[in-house]
Design a protein around this nucleic acid. Structure first.
Length: 594
RNA sequence: GCCCCGGUAGCUCAGUUGGAUAGAGCAACGGCCUUCUAAGCCGUCGGUCACAGGUUCGAGUCCUGUCCGGGGUGCCA
């Protein structure tokens, strides 16, 4: 991390002065209402130095006042507000560009092999806004972890089997009439999803008939009547046929899955999502069974009177969990046990992360508890990165009520709005790369909206209010970058060849900007440590904001003296490179011109 | 019933291991393009940090209880 020169000297001084272990001093930003660049909080030092905060503050101020890097150190309560000499401030904060960008890399011993699983779509319908949040969070997290030096493997586990898949298949058999995505000119996942909807319609119709005939079932939820309907039984029979390897069913399944996966590929391409490894549930779902049977012999699990295999997790306050049904088949958690072991064997990660919605926290607690009971040491390092739902102003997204925000439609809409906004600002001549710009801006706006909030909280997605390119948005950050890029195109080439004298800088906007730049490595590391991309997104907003103020107040290419022009363009270069690095780490593209 | 997550400005959200007078954006209103891109900048307005106790020199942050919202809760995924 970026370290100011005076900090190391202060640490040495304090250790000696108070005869204590060398403290770790982490300066904070000095609040605007006080004069100073940085603040040393002596309340925090009080414990490790075993001394009175006020006394520490007094000594600290005395020491710092005489330090060559410092022009003033003012004590307010136990806060010491430090004003640095400009040479020292800019030298330490932004003097060494390579160091600034590399400082976020963790030392070798702190680097880990991380396996991160995200997306995990079902192959029965297209992806919606909820998946978009998952994809954005997962790929940004993988990228952030990589950026700080971990070795990351990103994994997708496609849920390509099960009763929900059979529903689309049954519907296609009935009403498909040999049509294909190609023949209809429809994206494959949407094509299959339409049949899933047809199935649900027919199922609801049959449920209504049954309820009319059997008044005693009127109160029962539709799902409980699944096997009472003809179409439900057909789907169930198809699932059995699939499991028994019925060639015709398998052929249809292969065909329809291929259509969906082809559609997903396009969705991922537009989002820039890439996986190092893709698993199919159809290949992994049986793996857990043997683990359970083996664990049964070792007494990890036990069989109940009715024949189901369960595990007692009362000690973890998780109750009793069934791991094999009476009929011997696997449940969800059984399948995940198998998949977890497979991933562990294949990649030997130090840490596994799942990016999955918070409605599944219980599932993962159970899964992790079972892995611990099975005796795997690495079970202590399994992590469920739970994120909140995406809701609409009207409430939850519900496929049955048609309120689901489709991912592809949303991308189209964002791109269209970005295109309009670009054209509106372009003047007489539309830019040659309009489409590329619209894609980059639209997707950055969408991703940024999803990434700037804490992953834990539910997001209220208001299509009218959320689709903005002004204020706290991705395009705002991109715009700051584009303005700097534009300056560089206009800068005389010999300007950049001059040596930089940081001492000519010193306005409050310049100081603010440099101090902000110095925080970049910390923002990256915090985002990685807390598995929270919003730390980075929020930081980039703050940096872009600091730049916009600087840009407005301080002439750069038209600054009054050559040394000032030189130093200001160099400071701008730092900002440009951090913005580019940061946006790319969040999986967003930058534009040289907007 | 029990467990988990949340509640901060009209709206959407920040708020580092507890630290200074709680901050942004949007919305509303008022300024700033003869100046390096106005997707910008500046200003005004806006707060019982859900509520009540407690711990502490100090609480939006930690503890207890209450209220409200969401999710989950042995053979759906």
């Amino acid at each position: 991390m970026t370290k100011y020169g005076f900090i190391a000297d202060l640490e040495t001084f304090l250790a000696h002065e108070f005869e204590a272990e060398r403290p770790r001093v982490t300066p904070e930003r000095c609040p605007a209402e006080f004069s100073g660049d940085l603040t040393v909080n002596c309340f925090r030092l009080a414990r490790s130095l075993r001394n009175n905060p006020m006394k520490i503050a007094t000594r600290t101020a005395e020491f710092l006042t005489q330090h060559p890097d410092i022009v003033g150190a003012e004590t307010v309560k136990a806060f010491v507000n430090v004003t640095l000499r400009p040479e020292a401030l800019f030298r330490d904060a932004v003097g060494d560009e390579a160091a600034l960008l590399e400082a976020a890399r963790l030392p070798g011993p702190d680097r880990r092999r991380v396996l991160i699983e995200f997306s995990a779509p079902n192959t029965n319908k297209p992806q919606h806004l909820g998946h978009v949040r998952n994809n954005a969070l997962g790929s940004a997290m993988a990228s952030i972890l990589r950026r700080v030096g971990h070795t990351v493997t990103s994994v997708n586990l496609i849920n390509d089997r099960g009763i929900h898949i059979c529903k689309s298949m049954v519907a296609y058999q009935r009403w498909g009439e040999g049509r294909t995505p190609a023949s209809e000119g429809i994206k494959g996942d949407h094509f299959v999803g339409d049949f899933y909807v047809l199935f649900e319609k027919e199922f609801q119709r049959q449920v209504a008939c049954i309820r009319a005939d059997r008044p005693e079932w009127r109160e029962r939820p539709a799902e409980q009547l699944f096997l009472e309907t003809e179409i439900g039984r057909t789907a169930q029979a198809m699932l059995l046929a699939w499991e028994n390897g019925d060639p015709e069913v398998r052929r249809l399944w292969e065909t329809m899955n291929a259509w969906v996966i082809e559609g997903f590929a396009e969705t991922y391409r537009r989002m820039g999502v890439v996986f190092d490894k893709v698993y199919r549930e159809s290949e992994t779902y049986t793996l857990g069974r043997n683990v359970i049977l083996e664990g049964l012999e070792r007494g990890v699990f036990h069989r109940t009177d009715d024949g189901a295999v369960v595990i007692d997790l009362d000690a973890e306050k998780l109750g009793t969990k069934v791991v094999l049904r009476r009929d011997g088949t696997s449940v969800y958690v059984t399948q995940d046990i198998g998949a977890t072991l497979l991933k562990q064997e294949e990649f030997q990660p130090d840490l596994q992360i799942w990016v999955v919605g918070d409605e599944q926290v219980y599932h993962f607690r159970v899964l992790f508890a079972i892995m611990r009971r099975l005796g795997h040491a690495w079970a202590e390092r399994l992590h469920h990165m739970a994120y909140g739902m995406v809701n609409l102003p009207s409430g939850k997204m519900k496929s049955r009520e048609g309120t689901v925000v489709d991912a592809d439609d949303l991308f189209d809409e964002m791109t269209r709005l970005a295109r309009d906004a670009t054209l509106a600002r372009a003047g007489a001549q539309a830019p040659a790369d309009l489409d590329r710009r619209a894609d980059a801006i639209g997707m950055a706006a969408l991703k940024f909206m999803l990434l700037k909030v804490n992953p834990r909280s539910a997001i209220a997605f208001d299509p009218r209010a959320s689709i903005k390119f002004e204020g706290d948005t991705g395009p705002y950050v991109m715009y700051a970058y584009a303005r700097i890029a534009s300056m560089f195109r206009k800068a005389p080439s010999d300007l950049l060849e001059q040596p930089v004298n940081w001492g000519v800088l010193g306005t409050s906007e310049e100081r603010e900007l440099a101090l902000r730049c110095a925080e970049y490595p910390g923002a990256l590391q915090r985002a990685a440590a807390e598995l929270d991309a919003s730390c980075l997104a929020g930081y980039l907003l703050d940096l872009a904001k600091a730049f916009s103020r600087f840009y407005r107040t301080c002439p750069i290419l038209s600054a009054p003296t050559p040394p000032l022009r030189r130093a200001r363009i160099e400071l701008s270069a730092r900002v440009r490179n951090i913005l580019r690095d940061g946006l790319r780490t969040l999986t967003m593209d930058v534009l040289e011109s907007m």
